[in-house]
C-alpha cells in the first residue's frame, strides 16, 4: 500500500478508535467476572476447586478456617483479543471486492480499536486449520506492523473446518479474552460445533457474518457449471426456476440459522454484506453489544 493511502486508512481507523473510546461497551466488552485471576480489587473468597491456581489460595484464611479458600478479584484485567479471520477459499468469492478483503478491513478496524484500548491482539487466519498468527501485539507502536501483516496475508484457500480450528485454539492459547470471528460461515454445521467448543471452554465469542449478495443474485435458470469454491468439484446442471427458488429459500434459512444459533447462546452476532464496509458500518460493528444473559 502506498504511503498516502496508508495514512488515509490510519486516519479512518483513528476516527473509529476515537468513536469506540466513547462506548462503554462494544465488541470488546467482556462480562464482569469474579474470578480468581486477573482483577485489581479483592472482592471476596470462595472454596478452592480443582484446577484453581495455588498462587491464589489465601493461606491466612486457610489457617484460620482450616480449609482451602481462594481470593476473588474484580475490575479491569489484562484483555487479550483474538481475531479469527476466515481464510478459506470461499472467502475469495465476491465482486467487486471479495469477502476476504471485507474481512481484512473489518479485522483492521477491530484490531485497531483493541490496540487503542491497550488490549493484546492476536489475529489467527484459519481455513481447515489454524494458520500462523499475527501477534500478539500490544501498543500503538505496533499498529503499522499489524496493518502490514494483515495486508500480507496469503490469498484465501482451502476448505473450512471451524470445529477443528476451535479445538486447536483452546489447546494452544488458554488465556481468557474475547474471540472475534470474521467469516462467511459457509459451513454452518462446523461453525455451530466450533462455537459450542469455544463457549464450553469459557471463551466469549463474537460472530461477524459476511454475506455476499452477489452469490445468489448472479444465478439464473439454464445450463450452468456449478463449482464448489472449496472442494473444487464441478457439476454440469440445468437449473430450473423452481430449483433456483428452492435454493434461495434454503440459503436464506441457512443464514438465519446461524443468527438463531448465536442468539440462543447469547453470542453477539452481526451480519455484514461484503460491499466494502464504510466507516459507519465499521462503527456499528465496533459498537456491537454483547448479548448478555
Amino acid at each position: 500500500m502506498n504511503r498516502p493511502a496508508q495514512l488515509d486508512r490510519l486516519a479512518e481507523l483513528e476516527g473509529l478508535a476515537l468513536a469506540a473510546r466513547g462506548l462503554c461497551a462494544g465488541i470488546l466488552e467482556e462480562p464482569p467476572s469474579r474470578l480468581p485471576v486477573g482483577g485489581t480489587e479483592l472482592t471476596g473468597y470462595r472454596d478452592y476447586s480443582p484446577g484453581d491456581d495455588h498462587r491464589h489460595v489465601d493461606w491466612n484464611v486457610c489457617a484460620r478456617h482450616d480449609e482451602l479458600r481462594v481470593r476473588l478479584y474484580s475490575g479491569r484485567r489484562d484483555c487479550h483479543v483474538r481475531l479469527l479471520l476466515d481464510s478459506s477459499a470461499s472467502m475469495g468469492l465476491g465482486s467487486p471486492s471479495t469477502r476476504f478483503e471485507a474481512a481484512r478491513r473489518i479485522a483492521a478496524a477491530v484490531g485497531y480499536v483493541a490496540i487503542d484500548r491497550q488490549a493484546r491482539l492476536s489475529v489467527f487466519p484459519f481455513s481447515d486449520r489454524l494458520l500462523g498468527p499475527i501477534g500478539p501485539l500490544r501498543g500503538r507502536a505496533r499498529l503499522g506492523r499489524f496493518l502490514r501483516q494483515l495486508d500480507a496475508l496469503p490469498a484465501p484457500e482451502g476448505a473450512t473446518d471451524f470445529r477443528r480450528v476451535a479445538e486447536t485454539l483452546i489447546r494452544v492459547d488458554q488465556s481468557a479474552g474475547p474471540v472475534v470471528i470474521v467469516s462467511d460461515l459457509c459451513d454452518a454445521e462446523s461453525f455451530q460445533r466450533g462455537l459450542e467448543i469455544l463457549q464450553f471452554a469459557g471463551r466469549s465469542a463474537r460472530v461477524i457474518h459476511l454475506i455476499d449478495p452477489a452469490e445468489d443474485e448472479s444465478l439464473s435458470p439454464g445450463d450452468i457449471l456449478l463449482t464448489d469454491a472449496e472442494g473444487g468439484q464441478e457439476w454440469e446442471v440445468t437449473l430450473t426456476a423452481s430449483q433456483l427458488r428452492r435454493y434461495r429459500k434454503l440459503a436464506a434459512e441457512d443464514k438465519e440459522r446461524a443468527r438463531r444459533h448465536c442468539s440462543a447462546r447469547h453470542l453477539p452476532y452481526v451480519r455484514v454484506e461484503t460491499m466494502a464496509p464504510d466507516r459507519r458500518l465499521l462503527g456499528n460493528i465496533i459498537a456491537m453489544r454483547t448479548a448478555l444473559p
Binding site: 450452468i224 456449478l226 472449496e230 446442471v237 435454493y247
Partner: peptide
C-alpha cells in the same frame, strides 16, 4: 462459449436442491 461457471460456497445446499447434481450431466451433454 461454455455455460457460465458459478462458484458456490454452500455445496451442501445445492445437494439438497439437486440431489446428486452430476446425475444430470449426461442429459446436459
Amino acid at each position: 462459449i461454455r455455460p457460465p461457471r458459478v462458484v458456490v460456497s454452500r455445496p451442501y445446499l445445492w445437494r439438497q436442491v439437486l440431489g446428486e447434481p452430476r446425475s444430470s450431466a449426461p442429459a446436459w451433454f
